[in-house]
Computed example of a mutant assay.
Amino acid sequence: MVEVRAVQAVLEDLRAEGEALDALVAPLGAEGWAAGTPAAGWTVAHQVAHLAWTDGRALLAVRDPDGFTAELGGDLAELAASVDKGAAAGAAEPYARLLARWRAGRDALLEALGAAPPGARFPWYGPPMSTASVATGRLMETWAHGEDVADTFGVRRAPTARLRHVARIAVRARDYAFAVRGMAPPAEEFRVELAAPDGGLWTYGPPDAAQRVTGPALDFCLLAVRRRHRDDTAVRAQGPDADRWLSVAQAFAGPPGAGRAPAADGGAA
């Protein structure tokens, strides 16, 4: 019962995150959908098309795990190529059709995840994931690409408690962030303390850990989805390995990409 309630809670957060981005892109006309975003070569349409493509992959993994596994690529380069191809194909659609397809895919994925039996696990680009983990991953990516769209138009979205999902993924993906760059993960655990949007504190890791990361949850999440350079955040590290982590932190699977350059004026990019 606890697991069911936890899944329902993250599914509601995933729904809300999708609706928040939907409200940002739906009023845009053709010119807005064709606007270039901070991701080089990607328009707003590319951002939404990428989410629609990845939602579709997640839906396949939930509905047809064997079919997903049969289509699974072999390495990160192949995954990156598939992502780019999916985004480009979707971006070529009329924006109204793309928007409708993205909405339908979001609804179908939410329905499929809600109907999954307790304890189910699904294949993905890495270790198999639970229902809650699939939903959390989709929320993280929806929020991250929503930041790209928001930055395109100079919109500053108020952070919400939904960021706790992004922060948790980033903390759990610490060792992956090192490994995907061919670096040995640190041997010891870190303490992470993040100032939540509601004034509370989100904590991870042992309280007495020698190496620590502290700062606003929003800044940490922006850093972990590589939408801000660390120099443009108020996230701070204590200890050499924790400091190194802030330069490689990554909450998503696949190649790290170029990330954001420091803002020219020292502010947020």
Rank of each mutant, 00 (worst) to 15 (best):
D55K: 11
A253Y: 13
A167V: 13
P159N: 11
T233E: 02
A45S: 09
A179Y: 02
R164K: 13
L28C: 00
G36T: 01
R97L: 15
L51A: 04
I169R: 15
V149H: 09
M129G: 10
L109S: 14
A158C: 09
E71R: 15
R121F: 00
G146T: 00
G215E: 12
A217I: 00
V25K: 00
V25T: 03
P94R: 03
L59N: 02
A195G: 12
Q47C: 12
Y176I: 00
R164I: 09
A58F: 13
R101A: 15
A116Q: 11
A16T: 13
W245Y: 08
E31Q: 12
A217S: 10
A258D: 10
V213Q: 06
W42C: 03
A187C: 06
T136M: 08
A16D: 15
R260M: 05
G90F: 10
A26R: 12
A268G: 14
E188K: 10
G86A: 06
R162Q: 12
E147A: 11
S247D: 14
A40P: 15
L163M: 07
A184Y: 01
A251D: 07
A173G: 01
A35F: 07
L51W: 10
A112F: 11
F220R: 05
R138S: 06
H229L: 04
V155K: 13
L194P: 01
A30N: 12
R212N: 11
R15Q: 11
A61R: 13
E188C: 09
A269G: 15
E31V: 13
